[in-house]
Amino acid sequence: MAIEVRIPTILRSYTGGAKVVEGAGDTLADLLADLDSRHAGLRGRLVTDAGVLHRFVNVYVNDEDVRFLGALDAKLNDGDSITILPAVAGGAFGFAAAAAIASHTVATRAAAAR
């Protein structure tokens, strides 16, 4: 079972420069574990020590933001296409305050999507 994964420029050091790699897994968590077995360190750039997706990494399954599909628990199927993009974010605000607001925003959006 093959799932195509598109790797952003900044993470291609883990994939030998490859823009697209293939992996397998029933869920996003399984897929990332599979990828990490061949591209060591990649998973650690996407998943926090607490075991959740980094807030400022966007992962998409086909055309959907994975946050609305169960995040790491999102179910995957053969032939799915995964895209990883580092969020483009910033601003004048202090770091801690910005992160707090951003996580609130995502929680609000996730709630609205339910």
């Binding site: 055309d63 483009v88 605000f93 607001i101 925003t105």
Partner: peptide, 24 residues
Amino acid sequence: PMENAARSMTFYEFDSMEHLRVWR
């Protein structure tokens, strides 16, 4: 021009779906 999904005076963030669409 991208939408600032944060709509803030002190923070900006690309809307995740617009980001995907534009990058594709």
